[in-house]
Amino acid sequence: MRLTILSPLCLVLVLAGLCTPAVARVFIGVVKTIEGGAVIERKGETIPVVTGMEIRQADTIKTDRHGYVGLVFSDDTRISMGPNTEIAVDDYLFQPLDKRLSFIVRLIRGTVSFISGQITRLAPESVQLVMPEATIGVRGTHVLVKVD
């Protein structure tokens, strides 16, 4: 039943160019600011961070002892990272049309400011900041975390 409703809808979306084949990657986030040194670890590769670079699901972002990085996500979430900081984007889904919403960030070490966005507004229970000893549930919006 569900399928019969969904398939014409998906057909419309395919025709509209939304459900493009798997090759097209959905944009999730972008590096807006970088000062000092920082890298992204992605599928075993280590890539130096530059402004305008895209963030992808499962990326680990690391700053060095002089590094500062500012990230903006597609749902308006903003993350500011201080020096000697490491975070991992464990899960990110911002697809309100399919009610698929999730944002799980792991804070491994360092200092981070987190300003939540539309995912928190639409589905607060699906946003989690995971620290080594506990997890933060965010019902809006501006949270500072320091993991020593």
């Binding site: 997890t135 019902r139 809006g140 320091k146």
Partner: peptide
Amino acid sequence: GHKSTVILVPDPDGSLGQITVSN
């Protein structure tokens, strides 16, 4: 060695959210 500090601060627009820290 671990110690995590979590602080709730006002939003840039002045409003205040809410968080739950749990384990």
